[in-house]
Amino acid sequence: MGRPPVITTAGLTKHYGAVHALTDLTVAVGAGVTGLVGANGAGKSTLIKILLGLLEPTGGHAHVLGHDIEHEGQEIRRVVGYMPEHDCLPPDVSASDFVVHMARMSGLGASAARERSADVLRHVGLDEERYRPMGGYSTGMKQRAKLAQALAHDPQLVFLDEPTNGLDPAARNDMLSLVQRIGSEFGIAVLVTSHLLGELEQVSDHVIVLDGGHLLRSSATGDFLEQTGSLLVEVVGTEAERDRLGEALALRGLTCRPRGAMVAIDPPPPELAHEGAAHDLIRDVAAELGLGLMRLQPDRRHLEDVFLDGDARV
C-alpha cells in the first residue's frame, strides 16, 4: 500500500466535560475498506464528526485526504461523503429529488447532479421506488437512500456510520457487499463503523478497534484472524464420542478441551509441531477408536477475541 494514508490522527482527544469520548487516538487509515469497531459509546461517531470538521477536538491533530481538520474543514467536506447513523431523510420528498438536491449542495451543476443521482441510486439498488416519498420506505430502502446521498458527489472517502443498523439478515448482506464494492470496485476509501464485529470481518481490509475512547488495536483484518495454530476436530456421534476422542488425544500429549460439538486442540507440543504430525495423530486415534472424522480444520481467531484480550490486559 504505497499510497499516502487517507486519514491520519495524532493524539486526537475529545472530552465533553467529565465524559471522555476519545482519548489520545493516534491512527492511520489507508485506501480500501476500514472497519471502525466498538461498543455503543466507544467514540466511533465522535471520531467521524471530528474528521468532518463538525466537532472541534479538545486536543490533537488530524488530516483527512491531506487536509488539516482544523483549518480546511470545507475542503474536506467537498470530497468526503457521510452517511449518518440516525434517520435523516425528509419524509415528503422522493429519494430521486433528494439525492439530486444533495449532490447540488456538494457543488455539482444541475445536469451533473441529475445524472450522478440516477447512477448512484441504481448502484445502491433503488429502482422504481426512488420516485416515491421517502416517508413510506422500509428501513432497508432508507439506508440505501442515505448511502446514495453520501456517494452522489463522487467522494474520495465515505464515512458510513452503522450502515447495517436495523436491517434484516438479507438486507444486511446486501449492504455489506455494497460496502465492499464501494471500497474495491468504486475505488472510494471507506471508513465503516459497526458494533457487530463479525460484519466487519467479512468486508474490511483493515480494522480499528475502539474501546471507551481508547484505541485497542489497529491492524489488517488478516492479522486479527491469523491462524492460532489450534485445531478443531469433529467426529460423528454425540458428546460421548467427542469426549472419548478428547481423552484419547490427551493421553497422546495434546491439550484438548470441548467446544460445542467439537474438540479444540491447543497448539501441539514441539515433538508434534512439524508439518502434519498432529493431523496424522488425530486421524490415527480416530481410526483406533472407530470414530468417523467429520471435520479437521485450523482454528481461526475472531475479532471478538481482541476484546477478550483487551479486557484481560485491562
Binding site: 463538525l54 467537498r78 456538494s106
Partner: peptide, 18 residues
Amino acid sequence: SRDLRHRSIVLYLARPLP
C-alpha cells in the same frame, strides 16, 4: 423546522457550506 426536525441538517453540514 424541516431540516432540524428530520435531522437532514446533518447532511447539509457534512457538505461544504458552513
